[in-house]
Design a protein around this nucleic acid. Sequence first.
DNA 1: GATGAATGAGATTTCATTCAT
DNA 2: TATGAATGAAATCTCATTCAT
Lengths: 199, 199, 199, 199
Amino acid sequence: MPSDVALERRRQILDAAVRVFSRQGFHSTRVSDIADEADVAYGLVYHYFPSKDQVLDELFTERWSLLLTAIEEADRSELEPREKLGAVAGFIIESYRYDPDLMKVIIVEVTRAANSFGRTHLDQIDAAFRLIEKIITEGQASGAFTPAVDPYFASMSFYGVIEQLLTGWIFGLLPTGEAEFESAGDRVVAMVCDGLDSD
Amino acid sequence: MPSDVALERRRQILDAAVRVFSRQGFHSTRVSDIADEADVAYGLVYHYFPSKDQVLDELFTERWSLLLTAIEEADRSELEPREKLGAVAGFIIESYRYDPDLMKVIIVEVTRAANSFGRTHLDQIDAAFRLIEKIITEGQASGAFTPAVDPYFASMSFYGVIEQLLTGWIFGLLPTGEAEFESAGDRVVAMVCDGLDSD
Amino acid sequence: MPSDVALERRRQILDAAVRVFSRQGFHSTRVSDIADEADVAYGLVYHYFPSKDQVLDELFTERWSLLLTAIEEADRSELEPREKLGAVAGFIIESYRYDPDLMKVIIVEVTRAANSFGRTHLDQIDAAFRLIEKIITEGQASGAFTPAVDPYFASMSFYGVIEQLLTGWIFGLLPTGEAEFESAGDRVVAMVCDGLDSD
Amino acid sequence: MPSDVALERRRQILDAAVRVFSRQGFHSTRVSDIADEADVAYGLVYHYFPSKDQVLDELFTERWSLLLTAIEEADRSELEPREKLGAVAGFIIESYRYDPDLMKVIIVEVTRAANSFGRTHLDQIDAAFRLIEKIITEGQASGAFTPAVDPYFASMSFYGVIEQLLTGWIFGLLPTGEAEFESAGDRVVAMVCDGLDSD
DNA sequence: GATGAATGAGATTTCATTCAT
DNA sequence: TATGAATGAAATCTCATTCAT
């Protein structure tokens, strides 16, 4: 039963880790950087986490489980299929708006890291794709979505568009700002649902 | 004027690097691993490349410039806009089919590596997005594509779908095989151009 | 004037330390291991002992002073010289029978540790050799023992045989059991006093 | 096929390790101490040895295998049983005379280290006891030695006396010098074979 | 060109000890 | 007395890079 102050310290370290991982990347971050950023002693990081890897693992899992919950909720809602996708996109975009550093870390260090963290968390990552797939399958059943596309492929495409959007923001290739964040969800949904072709 | 045998050695080392980078990831790969895989002496790697980073840089640049050329060629062709996108997607998919290790390395180690190689090569990466954007802009001008979407955003979405497709293959989430490679380009184009919505 | 409960706690910690030192060796034992084994809080070890070294120091001194007393008593007794040596050997063997972990710690961590605890406690160690030497010298004076051997050398030899016996038990090279413990003292004395040669 | 210079470097490091292990003890020796003493760069130690432990392992095994060979040779010789024991004692004593640091390291860090190196090398250690046992058994068969003592116990006793002698030298409790080294073997044999009792 | 030994800066991790409560 | 969080000084080991041959 960890005390409140202990939980606070963990949070302090996790938050600091997000900032330095985001700034320097996981591999260029030394544990001492995390400790310095958190303004705690070196060893305290190891008091709370067994390893540097575990810090990232926890950051990822914490946030990703929220994402899974959000997709499940969208799926269970009374929304139209297209709106469900909008809710999912909106959640991810809001996550970025709220804590861009954390989302940057997740996208840069985990979801494509096929030889390290991505492999470790593959089940969790795929769980999101499966949940989105479910929304699409239901949309196809209801006639909202075309049956012509494989729903799992469509799920990955949808996620790919969102991740590329965030990547654009991270790299500074796409503009950020209130207006952008507001409209981004709709643009993603329009892109994926309406497609490029005219008419 | 490097001799033929020298060029062969360079190639030998680059090809070996692709294999080990793909297998272990860039950070887990030691220079000695590259040398061992290439069956050359340790120091020879440094005879041909100034650093381990440069090996990856060269692998990326070599392949990415082919991609840029391919997109330019597609753009200059007489194809319909939608077919031009199909040509681009097809080129990337063929690249993966031909040398999955190399494409894995590029996607895993470069295009999202916002704090290292992705940042270094951002201009080259963005150049691809700009070329694709051009195709889309022209498609909008000709009436083939809807003017409702921002062409640069559409370009990134298009690329995001392809990269996610390859990521699915890399992680083993999507099936690979002749049939899949054959149809993949069309599926990407259909996804991006027709969208999910029925009719 | 430490309270009874305080003395109990000290004992609890010392006894736990014996078990973990014996099991893992002094260097592989963390202070937290001692605390865990003793079922007390981490910091309490430092409440009772100034350092981890001091715990071992105290374990050694406590037991070794009993040994010194035992040898002195044997010397002061009315026994024959050979029987005095038997009493000394018997005491050490009984010590092992009674608390093999403690004797293991003493032999493994102290009496040969020429660069650490053995050096620190050299006076106490040598005091034992001197007392045994005294018994032998008296035996030589009384004609029981041959004057041909240097009594200090003989003392060390006698102790060396006993320590090797215990080492054999510790390593599992020599069998342990009631019968072995019962006969061991006589066998040591026979070895040292009668020698190997026949007749 | 390591080159001559490579073998020389290994030797240089091993010899330096003997000196620092002997001076400070294994646990108080940092790898940098070995490197400094050998006058080589830090990393070179790891170029030749996978770990600090392996350095000690090699030192022990190298010397101990010589001891095993020496005991085997003594056993195979035409000497009387008592003289065979003298040859064994003499070899160990000469080993100490020739390289006291190495023998100190072996006795202090290995042969009693029941939780670390002693356990690891138990088979090699016991092999020595078994070979000595064989000499004693043969002595009993020939009538030279009394059948009253268990030969394995006698073997350990014999070794215990020698190791205690060396321990005495190491601790400075027993005088060293040419005369002592010369006579030591005979004294050990006299002690073990003739015993303490007069006639 | 080719070799692989040599270098040493740093990274992670451990853990004895201190200290605030 | 008792607790366990906090500290930070090492220690081991890695490995990119250099260099002598």
